[in-house]
Design a protein around this nucleic acid. Sequence first.
DNA 1: CATGAATGAGAATTCATTCAT
DNA 2: AATGAATGAATTCTCATTCAT
Lengths: 238, 238, 238, 238
Amino acid sequence: MPSKAVAVRQPSPMKGTRRVPGATRLSAIGGAPAQERNLRAQGRQTLRRLLEAAIVVFDDRGYHAARIDDIVRVAKTSHGTFYLYFSSKEDLFRALLTDVGQEMTALSESLPSISPTPAGYRALRGWLAQFYDLYDHYHPVIRAWMETGSGSGVDVATIGAGVLSGFLRTIVERVREVDPPVFDDPETAALAMVAMVERFGFYAVNHLQPLDRDVVLDTLATILHSGLFGGARRRRTP
Amino acid sequence: MPSKAVAVRQPSPMKGTRRVPGATRLSAIGGAPAQERNLRAQGRQTLRRLLEAAIVVFDDRGYHAARIDDIVRVAKTSHGTFYLYFSSKEDLFRALLTDVGQEMTALSESLPSISPTPAGYRALRGWLAQFYDLYDHYHPVIRAWMETGSGSGVDVATIGAGVLSGFLRTIVERVREVDPPVFDDPETAALAMVAMVERFGFYAVNHLQPLDRDVVLDTLATILHSGLFGGARRRRTP
Amino acid sequence: MPSKAVAVRQPSPMKGTRRVPGATRLSAIGGAPAQERNLRAQGRQTLRRLLEAAIVVFDDRGYHAARIDDIVRVAKTSHGTFYLYFSSKEDLFRALLTDVGQEMTALSESLPSISPTPAGYRALRGWLAQFYDLYDHYHPVIRAWMETGSGSGVDVATIGAGVLSGFLRTIVERVREVDPPVFDDPETAALAMVAMVERFGFYAVNHLQPLDRDVVLDTLATILHSGLFGGARRRRTP
Amino acid sequence: MPSKAVAVRQPSPMKGTRRVPGATRLSAIGGAPAQERNLRAQGRQTLRRLLEAAIVVFDDRGYHAARIDDIVRVAKTSHGTFYLYFSSKEDLFRALLTDVGQEMTALSESLPSISPTPAGYRALRGWLAQFYDLYDHYHPVIRAWMETGSGSGVDVATIGAGVLSGFLRTIVERVREVDPPVFDDPETAALAMVAMVERFGFYAVNHLQPLDRDVVLDTLATILHSGLFGGARRRRTP
DNA sequence: CATGAATGAGAATTCATTCAT
DNA sequence: AATGAATGAATTCTCATTCAT
């Protein structure tokens, strides 16, 4: 089958009022080869283009199916150039994963204490909204991480595990603060929260079911507030 | 990279008291080529072996990284034989996905009404236990489905979407029965439940975090009972 | 690509009033394995079915592209059975080519002397009609012979060359009888006649151009009678 | 059968005083992949080498038996490179067939009016000589076209039919000019001429019979001049 | 006799990576 | 810094032939 042009990314159904995320945040550290060179403006620009292109292609075809060829085509550059910045697809992926990890960890640390009151509900909902803004841009990277089972290089697994546990730390903290305590094992409960939130994002961006951003935020906030943080049960909006 | 021997499947951390699932259930319809032939006993057996082998290999390496070569090695048969039963890896995957879909749908239909009482909690927890028994065997197929984005054949996406909506149907029903109603949109709530439960299974079988089967079941049942079904908050086991 | 069922042979545009040819003529000698066995009625029948099936398949796909699988499917028998009668596709082809050669040689020997008179024209036209009856059934074998360049086994080339020179012998004879002589080299002239007649059959059965049997016979008889046998030029039928 | 080295092309028995044909004429448009790339000088050269190599290999082994491997070996390049220019053997064949078709059509258009006089005879003979010069170089492509029955891609059949009818157009014209008219259906007569000339070329280049270029040209010119164009019968050269 | 099953060598194709310009 | 060209190892897929029932 001849390689088809990679289509432009579809707008996600969960995009909405969002503070421009992602694109401009990439720390652009780059892979091994890039770090050995002094990048000027043009070089940094090419590096960016490659990282963004990779996100687009990972979204379209998944990590494994993504070919260097697709990435350079989207980035409007050449094969040879790719290897000026990254030593391999995995190298690029590591750079991407590190970036995403930093942003995700920063976000998780911003999770405030969640009280069982309506104020807690609002805080939780607000935080979820922020999460989905980030997720909206970076989900292909997260999906790629899922694809790379134990098979891939050790680095990826290590980095990924680090990101996950970093992300969990603050959440565990917040679950632990609930009084009276509900869970024997707050780690497991926090993981459940992450599982739900993350996978929901997956369903949403992949259009597996039709979803509305506000309904999603209301629903998840309700379940989590009541299920994890002892929130009072809320009546349906009439 | 030279082809490495495929390791034997690791015991999952969530295996426990389980009624032997899966292995013997595969309806073994097979792929396109198999359906055009008259299979005798020996042929049906080989077909089974290939399907089971595929699950093992998908587990070890993921769908994309799985080579036909790995599958036939595990199934202890030859390359040529594979193509007597399936026209390609995707063809095999379709057969597998259809089988798994049937089992999953059957399970979802067995979800009883969940009352807010301790009895409801126990019913929910029991059902979750059954789900994880199934998941334990079939998760590589579900993971493979995640890996195959819109890039792969239309069939896979269609079958997968069918499985998901079939699985959701009964759950939506049960969420709707809750009185007084909690959610504006029971579909979204049901999807949240599926998201959490499924992804949790993923974390568990992939050892991303250390997990204990009983703790997992307690935690999820608690969150869902309270968050979705209006269950009374339970005190920690002392 | 999955192997498609081989369609039934299309009626050729040159079929017409013909004495049932071919099918019943196959001498059914069979290949090497068949000759070592005493074939009973059933066996001879299977042998026939295989030979006829081969003609059909060679017609549809050409010799090289024809798979044993196609042949046995058309013959409604199994893979194993094929090798009970022939040791290979080439073995079958040899049997077929020998049969065709005998019929063709017999036909060529029936070519009468061609006088420059209208009687000669009619004799020539009648002989061409017989040729195309034979050709209509056996052309896939002749085409197969063209496909097997020097690459194939020596036998095939030898048999084929024998058939051609046998076929030429009588024609050369007839060209030589023309008085006054027209050609320095009657061999070359006879070959030209064969070339035209044979290739024309090819165009006809392959529908490369729309052709009418009677027009074809008139045209070729005219050209050959005038061009080779000194025939008087004929006026167009008014 | 292990892959044998491909022998150098045998000189054809019909080569003679010929103006170097073919090799330098290939328009070198290339296959699908080549058209999507910006070819520099080096690339165009490789493309040429592949096309010429294909002709050589088709000649040696026939179209079906030709392996990509043979072609790249003759072209002194690598497997992967082949796919930089053509998506498959059929793709290459299409490119070749298009090129040859253009040359053949151009040649057919150069056929002058043929009078029944010795001058007409000489014109016809001269044109045939040109035809065989072209045929000598391109016959493997024409043979390949014969090999690809309706089984192969639609394109090939379509292109081939186009070439044939393009080639016929002018010849039909010339036959129509004959006065008094001899044939009811000049199309059929023109096709007969093409059949004879083309197939004769086949016999010649494949050494099916020993042939001398001058005798061949004399014989065919005589038959056609007398048979199609009302030429006076010529006495044998004494 | 006949058949379904199995085999494995051979051929096509893909794609990450290196290189010369 | 960038690029088109080339490479070849890895993989998929095909199909003639053998075998056990």
